[in-house]
Write a protein that binds this DNA or RNA. Structure first.
Lengths: 137, 137
DNA sequence: TTAGTAAACAGGAACGATTACGATTACTAC
DNA sequence: GTAGTAATCGTAATCGTTCCTGTTTACTAA
């Protein structure tokens, strides 16, 4: 997702254009990987040492709800990244060294759901962890 | 996994047979679902109100490392359950209401790994969330 | 352009889950 | 039994996250 798309979504939902939101989105646009709230804070603190965690978490949650960011849990910490291809369902390979991701277009749910009669499926999670070619290098 | 199998593994790894470990394993043997440290504590506190969280977390981590328990993250909390069929790779449907699980024998990795040339896969996670037939009512 | 209003923010306290630690207890091998 | 070690207790500390309160900011419409 581009910055323009993100701002369009925010505007459609009556979110104001603030300096903090610009900084957060800029950071995610530049980093194609899952990031923690602390990493976001450290980046924001360069220009604004007094940045509040409340501001960061509130905005990350809003962006996640709006589909601007994707969220996952790694090592017990919440991680966020820019939504890759808006609207196209996919999964991720996540490099355990550098954190970069690679899209997995195949979704295992298609061949599974038929085997769950009587069950109501609400969601699923499929992630692959390992080392990317650069980190193996 | 049965209690006997669990104790055999513990014995092979020089773990002592203590009352606390007996209580923890007994609780998991009786509950075919993912449980939190707090739920384990509440059960143990019936006989031993002074039980320490340190004891619980340390033993849960040991059991998980030994393959006696399986571990996953649900709603930001660590959950543990008895390893189902030791040695047989599988995944889970997890009911978001009662927490009970159902095995998914099909593993999506078989058809995926070929699409990741140059990547080194270390692990993967595949879970389906929803309502089981009992909770749908 | 300015005043009004709701949203956003800073700063810090609070919270729940988890871990660390020194002192104590229980097991095991001799 | 006794020594040595593993396990536990009780508590405090840590960590990531959320809540609270007063202040500031961005948008709106006159």
């Amino acid at each position: 997702m581009t910055l323009d798309e993100a701002w369009r979504i925010l505007q459609e939902n009556q979110f104001k254009r603030t300096k903090n939101r610009e900084t957060i989105l800029e950071f995610f646009a530049e980093n194609d990987k899952y990031l923690t709230a602390m990493e976001v804070r450290n980046f924001m603190a360069i220009d604004n040492p007094g940045i509040s965690f409340d501001t960061i978490y509130r905005n990350l949650a809003s962006f996640s709800n709006l589909g601007i960011l994707e969220e996952t849990e790694l090592n017990g910490e919440r991680h966020f990244r820019m939504q890759c291809d808006h609207g196209v369902h996919h999964h991720h390979f996540i490099c355990t060294t550098c954190g970069k991701t690679r899209n997995i277009l195949h979704c295992p749910m298609e061949s599974i759901s038929v085997n769950l009669p009587g069950y109501e499926v609400e969601g699923h999670k499929f992630e692959i962890y390992g080392k990317c070619p650069i980190c193996i290098g």
